[in-house]
Amino acid sequence: MDLDTVKTRAGPREFSPADDLPQEYREAATRMIEFHANSEIMGAYLERPFIRQAPSIDRKLAFSAKVQDEIGHGQLLYRAAESLGVKTREEMLEDLANGDGKFLNCFHYPLKSWVEIPMISFFVDGAAMRRQATLRRTSWEPYAHAMDKVCFEEGFHVKHGEDILKELMTGSRKEQEMTQEAFEEWWPRIIQFFGPTDDKSTHHDFAASVGLKQQSNDELRDAFLDQYIPKARKHGLEIPDEPRIRERDDGTYAVEEGDLDWDEFFTIAKNDYEPGLGQINGRKQAQDAVQWVRDTIEGDATTAGGHAPQAAD
């Protein structure tokens, strides 16, 4: 299939591993899904210490289940990426470990305290869910199928995240203040989740033209603000003065992008941000430490299947 045909046909769930797709499509789809999968893993890596630090048995259970789900999403997504025949899961995990794999800006920052948990589990997960819901109509069928299951599970994460936020914001004055402080620190990063404005985004045009991406960064960011600014206020959080948020006549919101730190964002995008590097290396160390187990079981034929890219027939 040539690229023009791909662009003409590009509809929801249009292409499957049975289709003979051009390399440009395969590479763009791999890059996008690999980024998504890596983000699941690095998000889980960031949150895992809080399974232990959760302040009750039920919270610990929910948080363990949440981190487990994210690893499950990584599993689904790496498989969806692998089915494009460009890279194996092993290669993608290897790249993530050695600092070549890219992932979401928010997961490069350290997570220090329980009061920061809703920033990830409610706001970032809420943002992710906005995007993921649109990706159920992506043109790569295995990706859309992965999104079906991810969206099915993710509602629990967002609602649990909101429940933690509610508890903190109805808790002691100290808890409320600590949470507001965390919100102020995280808010600009959360808005940057959707990346730079469309005219600065490098990969958007192609991904949109072949149906991989269904909504632009700007549309998604605005849709997020419309939904989550009222939510934040309902819980008593004050929206910081910066970045400036404009309310349009129809009640929707837009952010003044120049107020956001794009230097930091692009440093992060290159995996050059110090705390993020620590997290990448920490995960690498853990991955290397169990290499011996993978070596031991790989002699077993029943675990094969991840060795060679599964190219289309």
Binding site: I57, Q68, I71, G72, Q75, V290, V293
Partner: peptide, 29 residues
Amino acid sequence: YTEWQVQAPSLESDLALANNAQDELGHAR
């Protein structure tokens, strides 16, 4: 067991041990 979350030898074994951790915690509860 939860120490193994995001640290297990493979994604599949990670999910499985996390599951056992939650079971045990549920029993403790």
